[in-house]
Simulated scan of single mutants.
Amino acid sequence: MRQILFVLMIGVCGTAVLLRFGFWQLERLDWKEGLIADAAQMIELAPVPLPAAPDPEADRYRPVVVSGAFLTDEVHVLTSTREAGPGFRIITAFITDDGRRIMVDRGYVTEAARNTPRSGHPARVTGNLNWPDDVTSSTPAPDIAANMWFGRDVTAMAAALDTEPVLVIAREDTGDGVTAQPATAAFRNDHLGYAVTWFGLALVWAGMTLYWLWRIRTRKV
Score class of each variant (00 low, 15 high):
M1D: 04
Q3I: 10
Q3F: 13
Q3G: 02
L5Q: 12
F6H: 04
C13N: 00
A16Y: 07
F21C: 13
G22F: 01
Q25E: 06
E27H: 14
D38S: 04
A39S: 04
Q41P: 00
M42K: 11
P49L: 15
L50N: 00
P51R: 06
A52F: 07
A53G: 02
A53N: 09
P54T: 06
R60A: 15
Y61F: 15
R62D: 05
A69F: 05
F70H: 12
T72P: 00
H76E: 13
S80M: 04
R89H: 11
I91E: 07
T92N: 03
F94E: 08
F94W: 10
T96Y: 10
D97A: 13
R100E: 01
I102R: 04
D105L: 11
V109A: 13
T110Y: 07
T110A: 04
A113R: 14
R114Q: 12
N115D: 15
T116L: 07
T116C: 02
S119I: 04
H121K: 09
P122T: 06
R124M: 14
R124L: 07
L129G: 08
L129V: 05
N130T: 10
V135G: 11
A145F: 03
D153Q: 01
A156S: 15
A156T: 14
D162A: 14
D162K: 13
L167S: 07
V168T: 03
I169W: 09
T174H: 01
T174V: 15
D176Q: 12
A180R: 06
P182M: 11
R188F: 12
H191A: 11
L192F: 15
G193K: 05
Y194E: 07
W198F: 12
L203E: 02
L203S: 14
W205I: 02
W205L: 00
G207F: 11
M208A: 14
L210G: 06
W212M: 09
L213E: 07
L213H: 14
L213C: 14
W214E: 01
W214P: 02
R215D: 12
T218F: 07
K220I: 08
K220R: 12
